[in-house]
Design a protein around this nucleic acid. Structure first.
Length: 496
RNA sequence: CGGGGAGUAGCUCAGUCUGGUAGAGCAUCGGCUUUGGGAGCCGAGGGUCGCAGGUUCGAAUCCUGUCUCCCCGACCA
């Protein structure tokens, strides 16, 4: 293993993020610009996220399905705003066969040009609503609550591992409802599911809110968001949920017969989170030593490092470690690092880099005391846990340590966000501070797209959202920019 | 897509200016010795110098093109 120097956050935050990812062997770059290879340790984090969310989706009545990767080009033009939003970043398939090229290699066979080009999905509203048109006839077919786990492609100009890649993994929920109220409720319900997931599972505090018109999803009437704050004070949109009105129903002519026998357009929502969440977790919790992961998504919960001197100790220590490991495996994901070509200290550094929440050192002294010597990835002194008869009491004790780590991470992230959330009354103050003190700037705001654009040009900060909570504070106040009566409370921040 | 930087062994890099046929440390493999916070000794393997053209007797080195990565912008989950 090469030297895994990690640039300190204080020196270069972007570099630090890339170093952490490389040192933990989460991803590798691929030969194609902007597409990343998810290595086993990185993919395992996504698998944990997916398993947890999938359970939450099913608990709220959704079912999974799978729609095709390829979308007929003509579908993208059906909804005017939608095409405008995505046209610039679509990959298009034009041929279905290669042939040998002159001078070696291969090239698309001109004789195999597709009659209609196929777009690699940047999102699936169009093909899904095409299908919904065939499935929905009566109010008895509604609501239709479908989710899919898939990859999508958006040909981004600038990419960043996990946070923005040309191809990424995500889930997209697409629901159809009989009434506006029901669809709006669904969009908000799923935002709540995302919020709960981020807080409970990823230990990331998030701010739920509504997007301003300029940040709204292409084709949506309302876009809801959860905004997270990274350690450098920048905002990251961690998930979105859209109330799509009847836009896609009209574009794809999806109607249903209501109880009075009248035909009506269907009301829609869509909502998604992506592998960006892995990046959010990394950026929120990791430190200058390397990756830190919340136990609930850590691929390995506990690593056991046996320590011995001489062959007889080795046999004794390994036997004990394996019995402890077997017991822990009943409830946790466990790794026993019995490599004999590495000293214990080197192993500690390696597992810390990889973000394993809890380490147990097992040497002759621990065997004699029937305990394990533990260290939490979040810090603190080493401490012993009695293993007893390797029963439930031991597992409970280990579980409490993991819960404690989970809670510590959430508390730290919450404290950082609170320390970096600023209430500001006038624009000059934000403009002066935001470079040196990046964070969430909560301000009274008179909604105005031009003013928003002007602020972005001057400060590079954008409206991340109008928080769902606390909008009543805007009443009777003046916009921090224009002085006009405030229509909203807005959060401005630099964003990824 | 514009501006800047970088691609040489698994990793970090030297060699490029001044063209002469590839090097170090770490990692890897074998052996011995080690193991409570980044081990030591001995030996070995490993590179069409990102790729494609060009100049030249000869190219990692000079020229042109191209791809990928990183940083800064504009665009975006």
């Amino acid at each position: 293993m090469a030297d895994q120097g990690i640039t300190p956050r204080s020196e270069d935050y972007s570099r630090w993020y890339l170093d952490v990812i490389a040192a933990a062997e989460l991803i590798d770059s691929s030969p194609v610009r902007g597409s990343m290879v998810l290595r086993p340790h990185g993919y395992a984090i996504w698998e944990a996220i997916r398993a947890d969310l999938d359970r939450r989706f099913k608990e709220t009545g959704h079912v999974n399905a799978y729609f095709p990767l390829f979308i007929p080009q003509s579908f993208l033009s059906r909804e005017a705003e939608h095409v405008e939003g995505f046209a610039k970043e679509c990959a298009v398939v034009t041929h279905h066969r290669l042939r040998a090229a002159e001078g070696g290699g291969v090239e698309p066979d001109p004789a195999a040009r597709l009659e209609e080009p196929l777009v690699v999905r940047p999102t699936s509203e169009t093909i899904i609503w095409h299908m919904y048109g065939r499935w929905i006839n009566s109010h008895r077919d509604l609501p239709l609550l479908i989710n899919q786990w898939a990859n999508v492609v958006r040909w981004e100009m600038r990419t960043r591992p996990f946070l923005r890649t040309a191809e990424f993994l995500w889930q997209e929920g697409h629901t159809a409802h009989a009434t506006r109220a029901e669809a709006e409720e669904e969009a908000r319900r799923m935002l709540g599911v995302y919020r709960d997931f981020c807080v409970e599972t990823l230990a990331i505090p998030v701010l739920p809110g509504v997007k301003s018109a300029s940040e709204r999803f292409a084709g949506a009437e309302d876009t809801y968001t959860i905004e997270a704050m990274m350690q450098n004070g920048w905002a990251l949109q961690a998930g979105t949920s859209h109330f799509l009105g009847q836009n896609f129903a009209r574009a794809f002519d999806v109607t249903f017969q209501n109880e009075q026998g009248e035909r009506e357009y269907v009301w829609a929502t869509s909502w998604g989170v992506s592998t960006r969440l892995v990046g959010a977790a990394i950026m929120t919790h990791s430190d200058d030593t390397g990756l830190v992961l919340p136990p609930r998504v850590a691929p390995i919960h506990v690593v056991l490092v046996p320590i011995w001197r001489g062959a007889s100790q080795k046999a004794q220590v390994l036997d004990f470690a394996r019995r402890v490991g077997a017991a822990l495996s009943r409830r946790f994901s466990v790794e026993i690092d019995d490599r004999d070509n590495m000293k214990p200290g080197a192993k500690y550094f390696e597992w810390e880099r990889k973000g394993v929440p809890l380490r147990m050192e097992i040497g002759p002294r621990d065997v004699a005391k029937n305990s394990v010597f533990c260290k939490r990835r979040t810090g603190g002194d080493k401490f012993a846990i009695e293993v007893g008869d390797l029963g439930e009491a031991f597992l409970d004790a280990v579980g409490r340590e993991l819960d404690r780590i989970q809670a510590e991470l959430l508390a730290r992230a919450t404290a950082l966000r609170e320390a970096r959330t600023f209430r500001v009354e006038d624009y000059a103050e934000m403009k002066a501070r935001i470079s040196e003190e990046p964070g969430f700037y909560l301000v009274p705001w008179h909604d105005d797209a031009e003013a928003e654009a002007a602020i972005k040009a001057e400060t590079r900060a954008t409206i991340r959202c109008f928080p769902l909570a606390g909008q009543e504070e805007a009443r009777g106040r003046r916009c921090f920019y224009s002085g006009r009566p405030a229509t909203h409370m807005a959060v401005f921040a630099r964003a990824y």
